[in-house]
């Protein structure tokens, strides 16, 4: 399966010191009320994408994440479950996945299909598969947003993501505008629904001449590993190599099964 990347945007909290909410208000003149950090992060990434590309109102919008709206979940857990208060209406609405997609869609001016989805493993790659299947039918373009928010204490996120206590987690939001059409594309990304065993992936990597980058979940392979942890790191890795106009073979792993993304620069 192959998709073409027409534009992209990236943000990592360790690389840029930005007050996202302030930026939304000041730079993008957006109303941030009744939203929370996860929604702000998603909208911020979408605004950056909008600066880079033409958005069609019928573009399909897919949003994925590793853990979801952690800040509203943590806040409501405190005042609902511990302090025995009732949930506030806007917190209730913000807990629903499509609320984030709604605000992102509204900020981009898209009004077509919108999906908020999570896969336990390979959530970014599985979202690419969904998009490929969908736009094969609809013949539209799609926008994929991958949002991972760090909340404090970040131990909550680490316990849920299944990573060591001393691993550093960061916030990140990354977007790609995707198409089946290669015209004016910056890169093409190839992927598959199939998972590989360790032996199979070693054979693939041995035969490969492209730069290889592993997710931090790949413990049994000996290549360069992506430097920080967040569940949708594949999205950010892809974007950084598009920016460099370089090809990349990205390997992700979960429970001893592997999936790969092949990025080919068209710049």
């Amino acid at each position: 399966m192959k998709l073409y990347i027409k534009s992209y945007s990236s943000y990592r909290s360790d690389k840029e010191d930005i007050d996202v909410k302030k930026e939304l208000k000041k730079r993008y003149k957006l109303d941030t009320r009744r939203q929370d950090g996860f929604i702000h992060l998603g909208v911020f990434g979408a605004q950056r994408l909008k600066e880079e590309s033409q958005i069609d109102k019928h573009d399909e919008l897919y949003i994925t994440t590793g853990i979801g709206n952690i800040d509203v979940l943590q806040r409501t857990h405190l005042y609902v479950c511990k302090e025995k208060n009732s949930i506030k209406p806007y917190d209730f609405i913000n807990m629903l996945g499509n609320t984030t997609s709604y605000y992102i869609a509204a900020s981009l001016g898209v009004c077509g299909k919108t999906i908020f989805q999570i896969s336990d493993n390979f959530t970014f790659i599985n979202s690419l598969i969904s998009i490929y299947a969908s736009i094969n039918q609809s013949k539209k373009d799609a926008i994929l947003g991958s949002i991972d928010l760090v909340n404090y204490p970040d131990e909550v996120i680490k316990r849920v993501l299944g990573i060591d206590e001393d691993v550093e987690v960061i916030s990140s939001v990354n977007y790609q505008k995707l198409s089946l059409c290669s015209k004016n594309a910056l890169a093409e990304v190839e992927f598959d629904a199939k998972t590989h065993s360790l032996d199979e992936i070693k054979a693939i990597l041995n035969d490969n001449n492209t730069k290889i980058l592993l997710s931090m979940r790949c413990n049994n392979l000996d290549y360069e590993t992506y430097d920080k942890f967040f569940e949708t790191a594949a999205s950010c890795a892809i974007n950084s190599y598009i920016k460099k106009a370089q090809d990349l073979l990205y390997v992700d792993c979960f429970e001893d099964k592997y999936k790969i993304l092949r990025l080919k620069s068209l710049s």
Partner: peptide, 20 residues
């Protein structure tokens, strides 16, 4: 996960497994 580490009186030893 929130119950296991946010509230001091309910804290449990660190353990993690991927969930979503």
């Amino acid at each position: 996960a929130i119950e296991s580490c946010v509230y001091e009186d309910e804290r449990t030893e660190y353990s993690s497994k991927k969930y979503s």
